[in-house]
Computed example of a mutant assay.
Amino acid sequence: MAGGGAVSERAMACGLAVAFLAALPATSRERGLGAIMLLLGAAQVALHLLFSTAPHLPPLAVTGAHEHSGLVPGIGMLLTHGWAASLTALWLSRGEAMLWATLRRLAARLVLLLTSPGPDCPARVRRRVESPALAVLRSVLLRHVISGRAPPTTSLPTG
């Protein structure tokens, strides 16, 4: 394991099952940062209890061993696990928000594609019915608009 200890393959398989079972209820809709952080914290506690009670194999290397006193972790381990869970929850919540936003955009485009007329359908021409009052209002509102999108019609005198 990354902490320097070693557990059996059976304990690792059980840990993988615990992680998947913890994540399964959260897959139906988008979750926020708080829900993800709570789920990650609970999964870390469950995995810590599982790996603490599992039969240990002899460590592969003595340097950097992950030492704790059975089921009760030290303050360093609590801080490290809390920090890791917080960063992972932040990372997952932002990634999940981007994923759900992308899926919503794709669904909107798919609906638009399925509901728009195809190229062999005749286009519907809709005529605007403008009232004379609307034409007067538009001319009053646009009277002092200066449009700079066209080239000048006359040349400026050079001095």
Rank of each mutant, 00 (worst) to 15 (best):
P25I: 06
V125R: 11
L33P: 02
C14W: 01
V18H: 00
P152G: 07
M98K: 11
S93I: 01
M98Y: 09
L113K: 03
R10K: 12
L99T: 13
C121F: 02
W100H: 10
V125S: 09
W91Q: 14
L110C: 03
G41N: 15
A43S: 14
A123F: 04
R124L: 09
L134C: 05
P55G: 04
S139D: 12
V72P: 07
V7P: 02
M77V: 10
A17W: 13
R128K: 10
V18L: 13
S139Y: 04
P157F: 08
S93Y: 03
P151D: 08
V140W: 03
P117S: 01
H66S: 14
L92H: 03
A2H: 00
L142K: 02
V111N: 06
H81G: 05
M98P: 05
V145D: 00
R31K: 15
A42M: 14
H68N: 13
L71F: 11
S155H: 13
L142C: 11
P73T: 08
L47D: 03
L60F: 06
C14E: 13
G159C: 05
G82M: 09
R126M: 07
A133H: 00
A42L: 12
L47N: 11
T158L: 15
T115K: 06
R10P: 04
R109K: 12
S8Y: 00
P157R: 04
A13K: 02
A54Q: 09
A65L: 13
L50D: 00
C14M: 06
A46P: 05
L99W: 12
V111G: 00
L99P: 05
L156C: 14
A22C: 08
G70Q: 08
A42Y: 09
H56L: 00
H144P: 12
A133F: 02
S131H: 04
G74T: 07
V7S: 10
G118F: 07
A61F: 02
H68A: 14
L134P: 07
A17Y: 09
L47H: 08
E96Y: 02
R31Y: 06
L90E: 04
H144T: 15
S86F: 14
T63V: 14
P117L: 03
A13I: 03
M37R: 15
A108N: 11
A108V: 14
D120G: 03
G118I: 09
A35L: 06
L134Q: 15
E30R: 12
G5M: 06
G64T: 04
G5D: 07
G15C: 08
P122Q: 07
L103R: 07
G159Y: 04
S52W: 00
P122E: 12
L103W: 03
R124E: 08
E96P: 03
R127H: 04
